[in-house]
Design a protein around this nucleic acid. Sequence first.
DNA 1: GGTAGACCTGGACGC
DNA 2: GCGTCCAGGTCTACC
Length: 300
Amino acid sequence: MGSRLSITPPGDYLLTRDVCSYGYFLLAPNRWDGVSRRLGRSLNLEDGIASLTIAQAGGKRGGKLDVRADRALSRGEREEAKRKIARMLRLDEESLAAFHRADPRWRRSGKGRLFRSPTLFEDVVKTVTSCNVTWPGTMKMNQRLCEVINPAFPTAGQLGRRRAATLRSRCGVGYRDQRLIELAKLFRSGEVEEAWFEDEARSDEEVEKKLRGLPGVGPYAAANIMMLLGRYGHLAIDTETIRHGREELGMAGTEAQVRKQLMAHYEQFGDQRFRSYWFESWLVSERRNGPAHTWTIERD
DNA sequence: GGTAGACCTGGACGC
DNA sequence: GCGTCCAGGTCTACC
């Protein structure tokens, strides 16, 4: 018999809006069901893997989150699951008011939370697998990492023990194989620690420098991971951002020139500039593809 | 500090 | 069906 948990989220929390706010909700092992508006997800817990579904009572803002597990969870595991869910859903997000002050366009809709993973390690791997590849490729890599290594997402220990050839041939990660293994070893050894990055006393510069030292992490990936850590002051500029500058903001010139114009344009949003850009860009995607909560996950 | 080319995969296209 | 080209960010070598 499974376990059931109830989580009281912040009063403004809306599962559909806040899960379907960043592309990682479409990446394995996350499973969003746009019809029932539930998030399915396997988690690595103390005593093994548990498959969870998360729904919000009444589908209304502030409604309690009803979490069901496919097996009985110990008291320790229940706490662990709650901690991990809180990280994914950003239930402890404290800077929403600051974001809405910096950019009031999103105050009414309440947008501001960006979905992430239960661990920093998973966020870093997902970011590395999103670089230099189209989105379907990123989806495939994450799906295969779960199929081949661990259905709840590979831990650093598991990924660090794999051979590069396996990751390349069976998980389709291409030239990222060795970089992912090195990354996993750094997390496994404790040389890279989630707590260090989560420490709010550290400056953005310190955090960025450390991230840039990780294999597979360049300027774009570092800024993206900083966003996932709750540091929104850096723009993660990729080809989509350049396109946004040209097509939505009317910028012109070479890529380098558009890049400079983007930096200048989002300067007005200060330490919230990533979110200001992101929600603009997300609206454009929804205009093209329909509401994010209806986006489907195509898996083999 | 700036730039060029390699890295790998999958999709689009032409033949 | 096959070959070619292109998109995508990071890394290294070179100037």
